[in-house]
Design a protein around this nucleic acid. Structure first.
Length: 422
RNA sequence: GGAGAGUUGUCCGAGUGGUUGAAGGAGCACGCCUGGAAAGUGUGUAUACCUCUAAAGGGUAUCGAGGGUUCGAAUCCCUCACUCUCCGCCA
């Protein structure tokens, strides 16, 4: 959530930035500032009257204790009339504040200066791209390979739950586990603290990281308890720091978590959902950082290199995209996407998204620290996948296939225990 | 799921209707004391919003969350969340 003071002080600049994100209602910025003016005015009025009431109430107490009953009763009557005046002001102030909150929540985060203009994925900027491998025409897509080597059973998942819930079997399950373990070790070696978070969150948490109200229909919801199944461990992990004041010397906080992720993916169809390309339940290892406001872009670069190195170690072909305003998430200020090349499908698959949210999440989370001058500052939050499992697995199977085997990447062998499948 | 007891500031802990944003202690910060340290001692030690602003100051709110009663609530009532104990159930 953006800060009202920023809207107030840099109104035109805010509108320019929103335009980069293709935000269509710049007039809301002015409306919000006006609501804030109104809010201040109402509060000042209310506070003044309330102060009078409070002071008189104290006086009544004194009068009562000195036995001055009559005067106390008189004052009581006065206060009662002031209180009647107080009611409408209180109500109006609350309504204005609520409206303000609702409206400012509609504004997405402001994109950083580095964000390219654009409307769709075609406008993303390719920052880096490795060589793309060519496979023989007989190469199989991963959904054939998983069948051939009995690694994943999609039909079984359909039976047990429904589409998008695959069953990993035998070596497929073990390969998946090996990847998770490898990712976690790689992250913790780099100083990220390992977390196993809850896989369901309450409404406050879903709001804190910005899933609500923006992604309401994309999350599974447990009605009886009011819980959301997490769409990513970013949500519970970042919310560990909701309503906290962090000591500056404790920053940066670096955390990594493995979790399943649940997404309803309403509206997806076709080749996008084939095999492992898009699922309702998938596994992911996430990295999260909570940092000083001035250091967040250094942290972002660090995370990007961190994820890039991981892809290099797995020897997968990849490219890094700087997302354009139109393709960025609602909450992000700058996002780098990582895609791996699925050689048998001849397409790029997103496996990581590394973002700096600046203070957009922390303003909702109320996560702050005191800077050197003793001033309260909102922290900056960042996160990234390191990495999303299914597409890594898909790509790994496709790119590493031979006539009658799948070659296991060097770095995974000590986890997997074998050099190849098949 | 049932019954009961709780939830107070960084922590411990007092407080059952009236100058209580909140006793006391610990911790922390700064000062005094000291050759130095410990002990001792003094002062300070929340957040948000508003107002004012060079600063200070002032106002409002906050004692798990939200509502209510009252001139006045940390204190009384209601709802919810969480913690603990016992019973039930259970991986």
């Amino acid at each position: 959530m953006l800060q009202v003071n920023v809207l107030r002080q840099k109104t035109e600049w805010v509108k320019e930035r929103l335009a980069v994100k293709n935000f269509k209602q710049p007039e809301l910025v002015d409306a919000i500032v006006a609501m804030d003016d109104e809010r201040k005015k109402l509060q000042a009025e209310f506070d003044a009257l309330q102060a009078k009431v409070n002071a008189s109430s104290k006086n009544i107490g004194k009068l009562m204790s000195t036995g001055n009953r009559e005067e106390a009763e008189q004052l009581k009557a006065d206060v009662a009339t002031w209180k009647l005046q107080l009611e409408p002001g209180k109500k109006q102030a609350a309504e204005t504040e609520k409206k303000l909150e609702e409206t400012i929540t509609l504004l997405p985060n402001l994109p950083s200066e580095k964000v390219p203009k654009g409307l769709s994925p075609e406008d993303n900027e390719v920052v880096k791209q490795t060589e793309v491998p060519m496979l023989p025409e007989t190469a199989l897509p991963h959904w054939e390979l998983t069948k051939k080597y009995k690694l994943i059973d999609f039909d079984l998942g359909n039976k047990i739950t429904g589409s998008g819930f695959p069953v990993y079997t035998g070596k497929g399950a073990k390969l998946q586990r090996s990847l998770i373990q490898y990712f976690l070790d790689y992250n913790t070696d780099a100083g990220y603290k390992e977390i196993i978070p809850p896989f369901m969150v309450n409404e406050a948490s879903a709001f804190g990281t910005g899933q609500l109200p923006d992604k309401e229909g994309q999350m599974y919801f447990v009605n009886e308890d009011g819980f959301y199944l997490i769409p990513t461990s970013e949500v519970p992990v970042t919310n560990m720091y909701r309503d906290t004041i962090v000591k500056q010397e404790e920053l940066p906080v670096k955390m990594t978590a493995y979790s399943p992720c649940f997404r309803r993916e309403a509206g997806s169809y076709g080749k996008d959902v084939r095999g492992l390309n898009r699922l309702h339940q998938f596994e992911k290892v996430e990295i999260v950082q909570i940092v000083d406001a001035e250091k967040s872009y250094d942290a972002l670069e660090e995370m990007v290199s961190h994820v890039e190195r991981l892809l290099q170690l797995l020897k997968l072909p990849y490219r890094i995209l700087r997302l354009c305003g139109g393709d960025m998430s609602f909450t992000s200020a700058l996002t780098y996407d990582f895609e791996v090349y699925s050689a048998a499908q001849k397409r790029w698959l997103e496996v990581s998204s590394v973002s700096n949210f600046e203070s957009y999440q922390s303003n909702r989370l109320k996560c702050r620290y005191k800077d050197e001058s003793g001033k309260m500052q909102l922290v900056h939050t960042l996160n990234g996948s390191s990495l999303a499992l299914p597409r890594i697995l898909a790509c790994l199977l496709e790119n590493n296939q031979t006539e009658n085997s799948i070659v296991i990447p060097e770095v995974l062998r000590r986890y997997f225990g074998e050099d190849a499948i098949g």
